[in-house]
Structure formats: C-alpha cells, structure tokens
Amino acid sequence: MPADNRGNSESGWRFPEVPYFWFILPGLLAYSILFIWPTIRSFYLSLYDWSGRGPLGPIVWEQNFRNIVHSDKFWQAAGNSFKLFIFIFIFQNTISLGLALLLNRGGASTHFFRVIIFLPQIMSAVATGIIWILMLDPIIGAINPFLADIGLESFQRQWQSDPAWALRTVMIVMAWQWNGMAVILYLAGLQNVPEDLRHAAMIDGAGRFRTFKDITFPMLAPAFTIVTVLSFILIFRAFDLIYILGGPAGVPDGATLVLGVLIYSDAFGQGAFNSQARFSFAMAEGVTLFIFLAAISGLLIWLLGRREAAVKT
C-alpha cells in the first residue's frame, strides 16, 4: 500500500511535486490582477477611440498607431529618452563603476559611503524632484549662488528653462538618482571576481589598467548585463522624477519630454479644464513602448548573455 498518494491523479499532476504552488499563489494572483490583466486590457483598449470615460468608441487601431508614427512629440520624446539612456549608460559604466572599484578596496568609511551613494535610490522621487527644482531655481535656488560664491559665475545657468541645458540638467539629476543602483550591482559583481586571478595577472606583470581590462571587467559581465538591461528599461519608462522636473509638457517646449511623461499627459491631459484626454491613444503609445522595450531588452539579454558565456569559456 502506498504511503501517501494525495494528488496522484490519472492526469499525472502530483501535489507533492509542486508544494510551492500554494506559496506562490497569492503573489501570482496579485501579479495577474495588477499587471498581467491590465497589460492585456491595454492592448485591447489601444484598438479603440476612447477618452477614458464613458463607453468605448469605434475601433480605430490603424489611426491610433499611424498617429504615433506621424507624431512629432512622440519622436521628440523617444529621442530624449534615447539621449537620456545613452548618458546614463556611459555614466554608470564610468563614474558608477569607478565608485564601485573604490568602494571595493575596503576601508573604515566604506559602509558610510555605500549608504550615501545608495540614498538617492531609496528617496521619494517626488520629494527629491521638488528639492532639485528649488535648488535649481534662478531666483530662489541655491546652486547659482553657490557657483558664484566659489568663483564659478561663468557656470551659472538657467538650468531648467534654457533649452540647451534643460535635458542636460535632467540627465545629471537622473544620473545622481540611478548611480546608487549601478554602484551596488557592480560592487556585488566585483566581490565575485576571484582575488587569485587578479593576483596571478599582476604577478605575470600586468599593470592595474591591464588587470582591470582583461580580468576584472570581463568577470563583471553578469553585472554589466543587469545594469545595462535594467537601466534601459527604467530610463525608457521613467516618469516620476522627470515629470516633477519638466512638468507634463517637458519644459521648455518639449526639451525634457520623455516617453513616460508623454504617455501620462496624453492619457490624463495636462490638468484641469482639459477636454483632450486621449486614453486609448496613450495606451497605443504604451503598447508601442512595451513592444519596443521587450524586443530591445530581449536582444540585449541575448547579446550580453553570449558575451557572458564567452567570458566563462
């Protein structure tokens, strides 16, 4: 007589083999209700003409997606998102990586600096955005007077209203916010690089740069993959901090408009009195962004995964 045949059905499904199912069920349900279903629903609603209120209008999917292709604002926002990603990518693979290398050396104050560097990541984006706005303000802000006080008057700018500087300002603030994530990920990667490999290279006469280039950086391939893919996704769907800094129109004149903010503005309008909320069009923009992010992220993971495999071999 079998000791226990609970769940041993004719179909072959065996409860003892999937006990974790009950543990993941609440999370799976929540994920399905809060993410999977709205995502599927977004694809459906993007096919219609709908302002977000009342009954659905006619099916206009072709018009929605054609309007996206012909929308100057969409391409302006996409271009700004791309520039932002490129800047963050370069920043994280130079400054953030450099900070991670410094912190990896250890020392009495290492933990203190880790906290300081990671702090912007866990702070409220809205609160930090407002603080940055106040600091950058040309009348009541602190940054321009500070520059004047240290003899750098020529570096004073209208940081947020000068079209040439507005996006650069957003880039700097975003880099400040996302720096902590990259530093921690690279630091975790660095701690997995075997010390004996580095020592062997140095014994063979390799200098610090050569050791970094040929040993440390290749061994950081998994961390590089995670940092790159995460940054790509997070920057292209960035919203909160940029919305606070640039407002719904991405001031000045769309210079700081990114895809996340554009989609929000199209979906909910730019404030009271606005009768121009275009929910289904915004969903079509969201669907386009979703497909783009999924495709490029998949490509990045495949390409960088091959690089990781090459490093291992």
């Binding site: 009541i140 209208q158 407002g247």
Partner: peptide, 14 residues
C-alpha cells in the same frame, strides 16, 4: 528669470 520652467506654486511664492 527662468519663468519657462517656473511652476505655479513657486511663482505664487515669488
């Protein structure tokens, strides 16, 4: 100065 990027609340405060 910088009115293009000045929000409603800051303008009120000024």
């Amino acid at each position: 100065v910088g009115f293009e990027a000045t929000d409603y609340t800051t303008a009120k405060a000024i």
